[in-house]
Computed example of a mutant assay.
Amino acid sequence: MTSCNNSLPQPEIFVLAGIPGLESYHAWFSLPFFLVFVIAVIGNITVILIIHIEKSLHEPMFLLLAMLSIVDLSLVSATVPRMLGIFWLDAKEISFNGCLSQMFFIPSFYVMESGILLAMAFDRYVAICNPLRYATILANSSLVKMGLAVIARTVAVLTPAPILTKTLSSFQTNIIPYSYCAYMALVQIACGDISNYIIYGLMVIVTSIGIDLLFISLSYGMILQAVFHIPSWEARHKALSTCSSHLCIIALFYSPVVFSVLAQTFGYQMPSHFQIIVDNLYFIVPPMINPLIYGARTKQIRERILQVLQFSPK
């Protein structure tokens, strides 16, 4: 229960604080944010174009990678320009409806990415544990169904967020201590009983990120079991090497979430500005790193990039 002595009615305009306590460093924060944005946009567009142009890459693994790049591109486009507007132009005001839109779309792209990572784990499981049926199980129609399932799950899980927030009638302040409209940040400045709103926020994490991480772990458990039954060390290494890029991306994507959840579970109170920086990393670092990892570790993509740059013989 959050009580307010001087509550505000539902405001038409909210103010995004950026990174509270570090306002004097906003200009410095903008430099790495801008660099990350540029690298993410160039990297993901490059991956999408190469997979689209190169017909030999029209395979399940690469088509899923193209989906991942599209979501990554959408994620950084929905977050970083707004942050840079705050850091460079002090453009902190956002309408209530604009806030609701951010609240839906930004976590939607994040949940979609988690779903695609789960689909990629399933792809690796089928490729290693059931290679003879790989083309049948992961036909184009199956990939379309996976993509639609990821979108449907995202819409079902996150549609209640703006609807519930719309029912909040009074607030302690119209200043949101974040660089974007986060659901929990907005709920925590509301007046009255917000326990149901918090429960919903936790359920979103459990029913999306938590379930995906559980099934990804199960997939790799079965993959490891299958790999260690292969008699040849060379064959084992080859099988595991096909998973290395995906494992790197999984570790990068889920680490900030796991860190935040564990910190809160064990009662460690992070400084607010540090928590906000970590939360920003959810949305901007994976979209930058993912194309770099796949570009460096996937032979077909790497060779195609080198051909475009004319660093390899024709």
Results as ranks from 00 to 15, higher is better:
181 C>P: 11
193 D>T: 03
192 G>S: 02
173 T>A: 06
198 I>C: 05
177 P>T: 05
203 M>H: 04
168 L>Y: 03
199 I>Q: 13
170 S>R: 10
184 M>I: 11
188 Q>M: 12
179 S>K: 01
167 T>H: 14
169 S>N: 11
189 I>T: 10
200 Y>P: 02
206 V>R: 15
199 I>E: 09
197 Y>C: 00
195 S>I: 03
207 T>K: 05
173 T>R: 08
199 I>A: 15
190 A>R: 11
180 Y>T: 06
209 I>K: 11
208 S>I: 03
196 N>F: 13
181 C>E: 00
195 S>A: 15
187 V>N: 01
179 S>H: 10
181 C>I: 11
180 Y>Q: 11
201 G>Q: 02
169 S>M: 01
184 M>R: 12
189 I>C: 12
185 A>R: 11
195 S>H: 08
206 V>E: 09
177 P>I: 00
188 Q>D: 14
210 G>S: 05
209 I>R: 06
209 I>Y: 14
169 S>Y: 00
176 I>V: 15
191 C>E: 00
182 A>N: 04
198 I>A: 05
172 Q>A: 13
187 V>Q: 01
212 D>R: 04
209 I>E: 11
198 I>W: 05
171 F>R: 04
171 F>K: 02
168 L>S: 02
193 D>K: 03
181 C>Q: 02
183 Y>P: 13
195 S>R: 13
184 M>H: 09
176 I>G: 00
201 G>F: 09
171 F>Q: 00
183 Y>A: 01
207 T>A: 12
211 I>M: 15
167 T>A: 15
168 L>H: 03
192 G>N: 10
168 L>M: 10
187 V>R: 00
191 C>R: 00
201 G>L: 02
168 L>K: 03
209 I>G: 08
169 S>V: 02
177 P>L: 10
169 S>G: 13
180 Y>M: 12
189 I>N: 01
197 Y>H: 15
212 D>A: 10
196 N>A: 15
180 Y>G: 08
188 Q>W: 08
190 A>W: 05
169 S>A: 05
198 I>L: 02
200 Y>L: 00
178 Y>C: 13
203 M>E: 04
196 N>T: 12
183 Y>S: 08
191 C>A: 03
199 I>N: 10
189 I>S: 06
183 Y>V: 06
206 V>T: 15
183 Y>E: 06
167 T>M: 10
212 D>S: 14
176 I>S: 05
211 I>V: 15
172 Q>I: 03
200 Y>K: 03
190 A>K: 07
202 L>K: 04
185 A>W: 08
172 Q>R: 14
180 Y>K: 09
198 I>P: 00
191 C>M: 09
174 N>A: 06
195 S>V: 13
185 A>Q: 12
205 I>E: 06
179 S>F: 12
174 N>F: 04
167 T>G: 14
187 V>E: 01
184 M>V: 15
192 G>L: 07
175 I>H: 09
185 A>I: 07
173 T>K: 08
205 I>F: 00
183 Y>C: 04
210 G>A: 08
185 A>S: 14
170 S>W: 00
178 Y>Q: 14
174 N>V: 02
208 S>P: 07
198 I>V: 15
168 L>E: 06
206 V>K: 06
210 G>H: 14
200 Y>W: 03
176 I>H: 04
167 T>V: 09
201 G>V: 06
189 I>R: 09
